[in-house]
Amino acid sequence: MTERTGPGPEDVAAAVLQHPSVLRLDGGPFGTVASYLPGLRVYGVRLGDPVEIAVVVALGRPFGEIADEVAAGVRGVLGDETLEVEVTVADVGAVAT
């Protein structure tokens, strides 16, 4: 079995979920935005070229700003500031009060 070096999809998912406007990750249509690991599927993150992220965000901030911030966070985790990251806002929700 080959050992993975560097951050994986679960590390990217954790970083994305730390953004205050991100409510959750989303698999997109038919769950197609996902990474597959042994015994685990990480919805909302697909590592590749480009990296794909799908999120549900809270109302209140412009989606473009949120997407730019999420993409910058993903680049930081993966250690490549030139990496293409596509962020899709799959849905919008309200934060529970």
Rank of each mutant, 00 (worst) to 15 (best):
V70G: 06
E84F: 00
V89F: 07
V74D: 08
G31S: 14
G48D: 08
P38G: 11
A54F: 01
R41V: 14
L37G: 02
G8N: 15
P29H: 11
G76L: 09
G6V: 08
V74N: 01
T5I: 10
G93S: 15
D26P: 02
D11S: 12
F30Q: 15
D91W: 01
V56S: 03
V22Y: 00
V42Y: 02
V70A: 06
A94T: 05
Q18G: 12
Y43H: 13
A67M: 10
V22W: 03
G27K: 07
A72R: 14
G48E: 09
R24L: 10
E3W: 01
P29A: 13
A15T: 14
R41C: 02
V16K: 03
I66C: 11
R61M: 07
E65C: 00
V55M: 06
E65K: 12
G79C: 12
V57Y: 04
L17N: 10
A94L: 12
G79R: 11
V12Y: 02
L23M: 08
M1L: 15
S21V: 00
R24W: 04
V87R: 01
V57L: 05
P62W: 07
L25F: 03
F30H: 15
L23N: 01
D91V: 07
V33R: 10
G6D: 11
F30E: 15
E84W: 01
R41Q: 10
L23S: 07
S21Y: 10
M1F: 15
L59E: 04
L40T: 12
L25I: 07
R24F: 00
L40H: 10
A13V: 00
H19G: 09
A71D: 07
R61Y: 12
L25P: 03
R24S: 14
E69T: 04
A34V: 13
L23C: 00
G27Y: 06
A90S: 15
V22K: 01
D68R: 15
I53S: 06
E52K: 08
I66H: 03
S21A: 14
T5S: 13
L47A: 05
D80W: 02
V55K: 05
G27W: 06
D11F: 04
G79T: 12
G60H: 09
V92G: 04
V70L: 09
G64E: 10
Y43K: 11
E52C: 02
E52D: 11
G64N: 01
V16G: 03
G28P: 09
V55Q: 08
I53D: 08
S35H: 14
M1H: 15
G93R: 14
R46M: 09
D49E: 15
L59H: 10
E86D: 13
L17S: 06
V95T: 07
V45Y: 08
A96W: 01
S35L: 09
P20F: 07
A14L: 11
D49W: 01
V12H: 03
A54D: 08
L59I: 03
H19Y: 04
A13M: 02
V70Q: 03
A96T: 04
V89K: 07
A15Q: 13
D68Q: 14
D11M: 06
V22F: 05
H19E: 08
A71M: 12
R24P: 01
G60F: 05
L59A: 05
V16Y: 02
V51A: 10
A34E: 04
S21C: 07
P7V: 07
